[in-house]
Amino acid sequence: MSVGNIIVWIVWIAAAAACIGSALAVVALRNALYSALALIGNLISLAVFYLLLSAEFVAAAQVLIYAGAVMVMFLFVIAYVGWDKDIAWTGGPRWQTLGSVVAAAALLCELVVVIVLGAANDLKRTDHVSANFGSASSVGRVFMSNHLLAFEVISIVLLVAAIGGVILGAQKQRRRSGGLR
């Protein structure tokens, strides 16, 4: 094992521990504000994984857009709604809690079994990638040529979401009879 390999392994294990730990914290913490902060940690440790997988542009976009813009919006709304309000874990009976944990564990077991079965034969990655793999230029070239329709559809989705956000958040001044106030 070379020194570089050992360093990559150490970084990987640290990132994996941070990832799983912060994901558990998002679900387990009672306070929504702390959950959001834990999710920011989760997103940043995922960006470390993306760098290890030589996806530099996606890692940068993850930190800038996700951990930056989207989570700031989340924190604004949590502050608006009031983060000190404690809502209990579940409302339903005990079997509902148990059932959801069992369902999630079954999902994880199923996925891990599929990965282990696949890892035996066809999960061998190539050792070397081209120098600009994952750079903004290579991702942008593929995005703008092969996946141009997806790009345009994404822009329409974002436009519709922005309009929906404005309609949901707009304070209606005049009252109409019937519909939503």
Binding site: I20, A23, V26, F49, L53, I115
Partner: peptide, 20 residues
């Protein structure tokens, strides 16, 4: 670093925790 399968396992674990 580790093989691709380990990344997939971490991704699946995060997905399952989120589903829970």
């Amino acid at each position: 670093g580790p093989a691709i399968a380990w990344y997939l396992v971490v991704g699946s674990a995060i997905f399952a925790i989120g589903a829970a």
